[in-house]
């Protein structure tokens, strides 16, 4: 598998990263270098092996249905780049 310049542009957009056109080639070759190196995993026989997603063997702990967060609006908004009347204000997002 080899990543093209177009694919890097697409991935960058999926990840919402602005990447200038002149960096795309470099990035493509870096990614390809890493992906080529990763390809050695093909040597491993994983037939019938379960994917491991965590090192913890217990099951999900559950909490009680209680309100424990104070709903502290100031704490939530205090680091906001822009807020007004208790709302986060962001650039116009229209579907």
């Amino acid at each position: 598998m080899s990543v093209t310049k177009d694919e890097v542009r697409h991935i960058a957009h999926l990840a919402r990263l602005r990447v200038s056109e002149d960096r795309l080639d470099t990035l493509a070759s870096e990614l390809n270098g890493i992906l080529d190196w990763i390809e050695q995993l093909d040597e491993v026989d994983v037939e019938g092996v379960e994917a491991m997603t965590t090192a913890v063997e217990s099951s999900l702990p559950m909490r009680e249905d209680k309100v424990t967060a104070a709903g502290d609006r100031d704490a939530v908004l205090k680091n906001a780049p822009k807020s007004e009347e208790g709302f986060f204000v962001v650039p116009k997002a229209v579907e």
């Binding site: 780049p81 650039p91 116009k92």
Partner: peptide, 22 residues
């Protein structure tokens, strides 16, 4: 850059996301 952190404001939402993260 929407709820905290350094936002790089551009014209529109997606350009703002991309510039902020870029």
């Amino acid at each position: 850059g929407m709820r905290y952190g350094a936002r790089v404001e551009k014209d529109g939402l997606v350009p703002t996301y991309e510039a902020t993260r870029g």
